[in-house]
Amino acid sequence: MSVNWFGFGFNGFGQIDPQCKDEQKDIRVLRPVVLDSLCTCAQTFSRTGLSTEQKTEIQKVVASWSQSAVIHISGGEPRGVCVHGAESGVLVSEGEGCEDALLTESFLILRFSHTVKCWSLHRNSRELVWSEELNTTEKTGNALQLPLVPGGYIGSKPPFFRPLPPHLQAVSLALGTEHAVLLTASGTVYTWGHGSHGQLGHGTLVSGDEPRAVEALCGVPMKSVAAGGWHSACISAGGDLYVWGWNESGQIGLPSKGLREESQREEESIEKDKLKGNKKEDKGTSDVFISIQAFPALVDVSEVSEINKVSCGSRHTAAITSTGDLYTWGWGHYGQLGHGSRCSSDEPKIVDFFSDGRMSVEDVVCGLWNTFVSAVPRNRVPS
């Protein structure tokens, strides 16, 4: 039984459903839709020796603001990469056999067994702009996922290869808009880059060019890290979720003054006629609101299960529990929370599309303003 991939949120360039863009429908996808339109790229496979009638599956989805890229597999083998969105086009034979992908607004980076290559995505100019051999003799080389590569990581713009000190023993790395979050083999979290919104987790708004351990997390081994626009997250070995940084839209799961005031204005508008113009009493004036959380904060997502995976968008966050449920929170203007509305939330809420449909979520990838999810029927035992 194959895994189904779904998408929801900003679709202004057809990066979730190209047909919606062509038909000039709403640029918002408010509820998860199956990525059928991204599963078939006849041009790609007809030129790599694969019949257009053969079924392909999605192995992985990566996203930037206006684009999404899909690694296709057939018979368990990577067959090519399709790019959908503002600068949409198809990488044909060049993408065959790729093991991992990283997408920015201007570049598509593909990792192969022994090399990493970067293509320009400028309109009518899909040229190879950079390539480098990988030192696959390193013990952790084959297990690393982009943007990590042996000896360093791949940046979002030139110079693409950035070295990392060997003593860090990096096993995972997440890139935000202006910062990076790294996980070491010992479970220690390091951050660097811009810190103007507290996204480095050091208790200040100061930036830093060199990796620095997040002291507030020392002594608590972590197993996963994520980075968004201006916020960061990590999951402990015990399944606890820690989030820090900018909370303007409730993306770190703590009370947001802006969201509460917006909600109050909506309630006042609804009650205006009943109250004959009298303003409702503000019951939230004594609440503590968080605009910037410069230290990691423990966020309770689910009282009954641990967190297995987390991903961060520009101003929203998504997490998968050990029971296969998906929770989202933060900015929801384009439907990127998957709740069927444009409402934002500073509290994690379950995406009932999957739980009500008896689906278990296996993976989640947040684009800046959208979300991509893989799920299987709950009666299936994952391999």
Rank of each mutant, 00 (worst) to 15 (best):
V181Y: 09
G357L: 12
V206R: 12
G80D: 02
G95E: 02
W331N: 00
D287T: 10
D325K: 14
E96C: 07
K55I: 11
K117P: 01
S51C: 09
V61I: 13
G7P: 04
K139H: 09
T48M: 00
S263K: 09
S360C: 15
V381I: 14
G176M: 01
E23Q: 15
E267C: 07
L148H: 03
V361L: 13
S2K: 08
T56N: 05
V361M: 10
G85Y: 05
H231Y: 08
L182I: 04
K349L: 11
K117G: 01
L175E: 03
T104P: 01
T177W: 13
L168T: 01
V364Y: 05
D352P: 02
D282S: 09
K25H: 15
P163F: 13
S2E: 11
G250S: 08
P150L: 12
T323S: 15
Y153D: 00
W130I: 11
C39G: 11
T321P: 09
M359L: 14
S196M: 11
G239M: 07
L259K: 04
S120P: 06
Q264I: 07
A180I: 05
L326P: 02
N379G: 02
I27V: 07
F107K: 05
A174I: 03
S172F: 05
K60Y: 02
E267T: 08
H114C: 08
W230Q: 11
A213L: 00
F6V: 08
G219V: 05
P296D: 06
T321K: 08
H72T: 02
I73K: 07
Y327C: 01
F354R: 05
T52G: 07
S88H: 12
A319E: 01
E306K: 12
D22R: 15
G219P: 02
K274D: 09
F8P: 00
H197M: 09
H333L: 07
P18D: 14
E57H: 13
G80T: 03
H179Y: 02
K223D: 00
A143I: 06
H179P: 02
R265S: 12
T321A: 06
G176T: 03
G250K: 04
E53M: 12
Y153F: 15
Q59T: 12
G76Q: 06
G250F: 08
L205D: 07
A143Y: 03
V34G: 11
S360G: 12
S383A: 15
R162C: 15
F10V: 01
L182A: 01
R212F: 04
P18S: 10
